[in-house]
Amino acid sequence: MQAAIEATGLTKRFGEVTALDGLDLEVPEGTVLGLLGPNGAGKTTAVSILTTLLQPDEGTARVAGIDVIAEPREVRRRIGLSGQYAAVDEVLSGFENLEMIGRLYHLGKERSRARARELLDRFELTEAADRSTKGYSGGMRRRLDLAGALVAEPPVLFLDEPTTGLDPHSRLELWSIIRELVSGGTTVLLTTQYLEEADQLADEILVIDHGRAIAQGTADELKVQVGGERIEATLADVAQLDAARELLAPLAVGDIDADDGSRRIVVPITGGAPVLTDALRRLDAGGVALVDVGLRRPTLDEVFLTLTGHRAEEPSADDAAGASEGLRSEVA
């Protein structure tokens, strides 16, 4: 299978900060690559280079077989970009936004209008089509932004944190739209800091941190890489959390994670069900009362913690501003 997106040794520095440090990636046609990493890992910079918004300092990249540095405009004809901040014009209506994008893809007036109507219909925005997007909900704006990326029916789609800041319902809605696109043969590169999102949508996950790839594989492979299972128990009484930690320490193969708020303790183990039975006996003997207990495989969050040594944090406003600051100064 041919690669729809391939990049070798992408490096980008903003002054002292190295945003990308020799990143390689490859996305086969018709698949989804999830680019996973915390804020400032270099996800947006990578997307900006692949969508021709930024020039890399080093490295090469081809999208849909075309060199992004040598022929940016040819690349732009074949891609759609839906950004982190829903880039819809607030004063224009949904229809006007899409029509304008169609015109700028040079689809011509008729085709642009027809395509705008089609997309509004598909994303259930027909009713709001002629209203200014200022009154749209967050989910509606994201849908419109995604629709904007699809105007020219691009074979390759870049989605930069498509569901950041969305409520769970809108997130599920957007996921189903993305799945539908992929089943239609679109290649997608998706950045996210939601591990669940990568798990749900991506065929392959590339974990990056400090501008470098630190792990790659399917969600299952990554979980295997971290190894073992987790016993997750919720206690009846938060006061017994320390006691439980002590009782289970001999079984743990890694750090035990205990959380006061949820009264939950997570113990990494190997050996499966017999170890769980053992753990229950120990807790019972120690008089620790349980509300809930189970054996499960590690979550991607835990995978991430193991791989990077830190959690995939929630975005902070400052980080986001700093990241886009770098991009802007480059634009100038």
Partner: peptide
Amino acid sequence: DMEKGIINRFRSLPM
């Protein structure tokens, strides 16, 4: 337009 990401949207188009 820069703040709202609209310029980036334009720049990703073959215009």
